[in-house]
Design a protein around this nucleic acid. Sequence first.
RNA 1: UCCGGGGUAGCUCAGUUUGGCAGAGCAGCGGACUGUUAAUCCGUUUGUCGUGGGUUCGAGUCCCACCCCCGGAGCCA
Length: 464
Amino acid sequence: MQRELIKHVLERDDFGSTVTVAGWVRTRRDSKGGFSFIELTDGSIITGLQVIADNELPNYESAVLRLSIGSAVRITGTLTESPAKGQRIEIKATEVEPFGLADPETYPLQKKRVSFERLREIAHLRPRTNTIGAVTRVRNSLSYATHRFYQDRDFLYLNTPLITASDAEGAGSMFRVSTIDPATAPRTSDGEIDYAEDFFGRPTFLTVSGQLSAETYALALDRVYTFGPTFRAENSNTRRHLAEFWMVEPEIAFADLNDDADLAEDYVTYLIRYVLENNETDLEFFNRWVDTDLLDRLHHVAESGFERITYTEAIGLLEPANDSFEFPVVWGDDLQSEHERYLTEQVFKRPVTVTDFPFAFKAFYMRRNDDGKTVAAMDVLVPGIGEIVGGSQREERLDVLADSMRIKGMDEDHYWWYLDLRRFGSAPHAGFGLGLERVVQFTTGMQNIRDVIPFPRTPRNAEF
RNA sequence: UCCGGGGUAGCUCAGUUUGGCAGAGCAGCGGACUGUUAAUCCGUUUGUCGUGGGUUCGAGUCCCACCCCCGGAGCCA
């Protein structure tokens, strides 16, 4: 169907030309001067296009006056310089072709602001709002920029499995994948459900990370990245957690923790600069309506970069402020949210990369440092969100890895292929995971992660 | 899962302290006005007070149980 996207129409200045647009009515205002104003949006840009519909139109009474917020319509008209403030151009309609109308008595969206909580209950209609439309465009930009960043650096895009048999990757509870009907489940002699009879002949789950799979390809093809959905069955009820979210996981061979941190910081900086350059109108909208410090903060990060400190240095910075914390700062304990916030929001006022955490509370695959106490791990923390990146240099020494697994109480037999990577042609390598939704939050100022993914999956919520 | 706050008109909320006629703004609808743009002005319709029990002459309000939402914590990205 012939029509031009509004974002392109708004750039034209060939007044007098004929243009056709299609979209959804945002508002209609009738003038007794004998015409109506129609504001039309089509999702291509946050700005609406103003259409003047004169009552000389043959279907003015039957069509134009029935257009209310949410109605779909195609309009052909003349590109005109706008005589009034508020817009540079407008369309003087010569043809108005309505599609589906929207009964204003029952259409849930209003001209006025609708709360984000309410919009989550009508997630199928919320993409029609300014905010969710802008979030969607920024999210798209971040996805595109991700591929550009890694492709430009010779990374291979790798698809790792969503269904996995590793039941202890160490990143929280998993969703079981099964074709067994609980009512007629096959049982073992001791009464347990017999997963040997299940589809894959063993217990299987939705992945909590593609990392272990990605390592196998990094140790063959040098540099890879995954970009896909990830699942956590935790009963998390916070504005920072989802049961289904999207993660980007690069994995690089012949690299140490410093290379890893460099890559993470370059990548996040690239993302921020990309949306600053390509989503200007959306970011201005967020800066005005959602978070008035947003643009200052993004420019500041894009220019001043990241602070990088070790866990031990972080403890040293936190200890003088111990009185202000609910949880005391102790070397050997993991950093609490309040500690992370203090570092990014009070001490440095910008993103902070914390490295070299104690071995005791980190994952088995992280490379043990020479001090015997810490591992080559890193977290990238940002103001307002907390952790957006978690990564490490991987343990490439077979004997040390096996030792770590024993200490963590893991069954080496389940990881025979992972250990094989260390038996044959092992090499130093590193990687990290970046939470896409948390970056969307950081770059839009949106407070709740449920509003930066099209259809959020959280405990008790899978309606849409 | 734990702690705190909340659930009353289509939406946002007041009313709960001290039990006594179910309220306001916005939206919608009707009208006025106007190159308008969160338009403005006048008029007007709208209720399973989250659900189920209980106390009481009488419960939105008090008691008990449960459900859901939001924020904080934990888990993490």
